[in-house]
């Protein structure tokens, strides 16, 4: 990155601030990943049920262009804003949510030296930016003036509280374990000792993963957009490009959180130290996490709202304190 800045005659910080949020790990990589991920999700669910899945859009590529065809359709579709909506919030909702969710990529490192800016509190920043989005999702549910959207927004409010407290506990125990709030330092400590976070604090990893599934509406916690109960949750009334954005929201969040999972628990760019190989390592690891989390769709059914709340508050919340205690003890390794 430093050499590239020298060639282009621009300061390194400017290049970083441009490349990280827009190219990798930001929007370009994100777009490719989301397109691949939705295709892979549909293909895997189809395989488990002995179906074929998307195929006829491009038979030679096994239907990989299906998502591009869908995207084109959404782009050309009319955006219907019906009379009873709160117009401004209805239109701004998906755009604001997507904007909030693309902000964490300024501070999430995608490899050694590949980040927008480095901060001692990057974990806190990522957590704070990711927790902004539920507010706009609830507002979207309210602005739609539709009962399904309303119920969806309420569910989002309930589940966000229980999911984010678990995520916060997991992150806190990791921070206590590494003794830092910075992703880069956490990865360097894992590389230095050779023990990844998944081994040293598996409880925190489990909590992080489950909270990730809950916050991004993956099965078995896809309660917010329960398709069979409340058509599409808070996103029921959307059409056209705005609907495509609402669909992307969960995948963007999932992508950001799985990069965070990779950095905190899977050793980040662990075997490599050069920027290119390190970036590939982080990407591949987070892709495996992503694929596993969408694969669960074909294994589980949807949890009931009260069961999920009970599970998170009565089982995982106490487990979070155990993870925190474990993190404090394990700190000896990384000190």
């Amino acid at each position: 990155m430093v050499e590239l800045a020298k060639i282009l005659h621009v300061p390194v910080w400017a290049l970083r601030g441009f490349l990280a949020p827009l190219v990798y790990p930001g929007l370009v990589a994100l777009l490719g990943t989301v397109l691949f991920l939705i295709w892979a999700e549909r293909k895997m669910a189809a395989r488990v049920q002995q179906r074929v899945g998307p195929y006829y859009v491009s038979p030679k590529l096994r239907g990989a262009l299906q998502l591009i065809a869908d995207g084109t359709r959404f782009a050309l579709q009319e955006i219907i804003v019906h009379v009873e909506t709160d117009r401004l919030m209805f239109i701004l909702g998906p755009i604001l949510t997507f904007t909030f969710l693309s902000l964490p990529f300024t501070v999430l490192p995608g490899g050694p030296g590949i980040y927008g800016f480095r901060s001692d509190f990057s974990m806190v920043i990522v957590y704070a930016l990711l927790t902004l989005s539920p507010i706009t999702v609830i507002l979207m549910g309210w602005a739609s003036s539709n009962k399904f959207a309303m119920i969806g927004g309420g569910r989002e409010a309930l589940l966000t509280v229980s999911g984010e407290i678990t995520l916060a506990l997991a992150m806190l125990s990791v921070a206590a374990m590494y003794g830092t709030l910075d992703f880069v330092t956490a990865v360097e400590k894992q590389m230095h000792t050779g023990i990844i976070g998944l081994v040293s604090n598996p409880i925190a990893a489990l909590l992080f993963f489950l909270a990730m599934l809950l916050l991004t509406d993956r099965v078995p916690f896809d309660i917010v957009l329960g398709e069979q109960e409340i058509v599409q949750g808070p996103y029921t009334e959307y059409s056209g490009v705005l609907y495509a954005l609402t669909m992307a929201i969960d995948y963007v969040k999932l992508y950001a959180l799985s990069i965070a999972f990779t950095l905190l628990f899977l050793g980040g760019w662990a075997p490599f130290t050069t920027p290119l190989l390190g970036a590939i390592s982080v990407y591949v690891k987070s892709l495996i996490v992503l694929l596993f989390s969408v694969f669960l769709r074909s294994v589980y059914g949807r949890m009931r709202l009260d069961h999920a709340m009970n599970f998170f508050w009565a089982k995982l919340f106490p487990l979070g304190f155990i993870a925190l205690a474990l993190g404090v003890f394990v700190h000896v390794i990384y000190a």
Binding site: M44, V48, Q50, V52, Y55
Partner: peptide, 13 residues
């Protein structure tokens, strides 16, 4: 689930 992932689909194309 992973075991079934390796099975071939039985769709008549």
């Amino acid at each position: 689930g992973i075991k079934w992932l390796t099975r071939k689909p039985m769709t008549l194309m």
